[in-house]
Write a protein that binds this DNA or RNA. Structure first.
Lengths: 175, 175
DNA sequence: TGCTTATTTCATTTTTTTTTGAAATGAATG
DNA sequence: CATTCATTTCAAAAAAAAATGAAATAAGCA
């Protein structure tokens, strides 16, 4: 029992539509916490995006933090991550010097950024590692050579396919 | 300094080809530790697969554990994970009652299993969550309705696209 | 410029995840 | 069927990741 809640439950008796809006928000946060965590992002990043996704107005950092019940430190770091993925942007609000954040909702763009920033660098360094493997090939009988050569070739194909397919994938997202 | 080593470095002076084979092994372990960790798998799982990937003979669990310097508990758990993804299989070795493991090297199959086991269940439950969102729609002005409806529709498209594209992706891997 | 408020940074704490190790279970062999 | 060896299980320890909170910095305003 007592599973960790996805969201703080400090919800007061309010009008029906307010309660419903809050429910929607909670479901949204839940949704994106899970999605982001599949992509290796910390909970706070999913929470922030989930909150902004169904928010009509853009929100300043301190409101994001208090609404989610997280520290401003977390909020700052989470927003930094989201900004670097271009998953949130800032809006100017007259007469308020705080930055106001809102969610970028074009998933195609989001994934394409994610792939470029989080996946491709790994694929690049994988190529170097494969080259190093080739230098360590234990030259023995031709038959054994074959075994290692085939396996290295498979890794080459894998990284090559990843490098082509993943960026293409984002393009296929007609959202 | 002193970054955590990917692999135990207890390597004795041996023949040149043995040293090279060991280098290859270390690079392979490094490679798969990183790849698996991108997919959310623990280090030990990557280590085991990396070891087996360049092993000509299939290996029993205790040898896997000692060669990697991990506990047999870890080895057992890691092998369970790899078995469930069909990333390793067992071979019979006459006169030895231990199971002998070797790596499945068809990446197409591996990814297809991974997507089926690790991704699709999440997509399925995402659909439920979206339905629940719709029930919480805060009916207000038609203009506001529109805002929420559009965002929910985007989530629908996203999960639908994921459900179609990801399995197709594995099929495109002509490795 | 000096003051106020917003934001970032980062050492420390907390939480979560992974590994260990030892006991329990299972499975083959004599 | 008892013994030995292989494997699993799981509570506890260790390691890794994330969140906090307070000090430092930055940025707007008067």
């Amino acid at each position: 029992m007592n599973e960790r809640m996805t969201v703080p439950a400090n919800l007061q008796a309010e009008s029906n539509t307010t309660i419903n809006a809050r429910n929607l928000e909670l479901e949204s946060i839940d949704f994106f916490v899970r999605l982001m965590s599949m992509l290796g992002m910390p909970r706070s990043v999913g929470e922030i995006y989930g909150l902004l996704y169904f928010s009509k107005d853009s929100l300043p950092m301190d409101q994001i933090a208090s609404r989610l019940g997280i520290s401003i430190g977390s909020a700052s770091q989470g927003l930094r991550t989201l900004r670097s993925l271009k998953a949130v942007r800032t809006a100017y609000v007259a007469g308020d010097r705080r930055d106001h954040y809102f969610a970028e909702t074009e998933f195609r763009r989001l994934f394409s950024n994610f792939i470029k920033d989080e996946i491709m660098p790994h694929l690049d360094s994988a190529k170097d590692r494969i080259s190093r493997m080739e230098k360590s090939l234990p030259e023995q009988s031709p038959e054994e050579d074959e075994f290692y050569a085939v396996r290295i070739e498979k890794l080459r194909r894998l990284t090559k396919a990843g490098g082509r397919l993943l960026p293409a994938l984002a393009g296929l997202l007609k959202l």
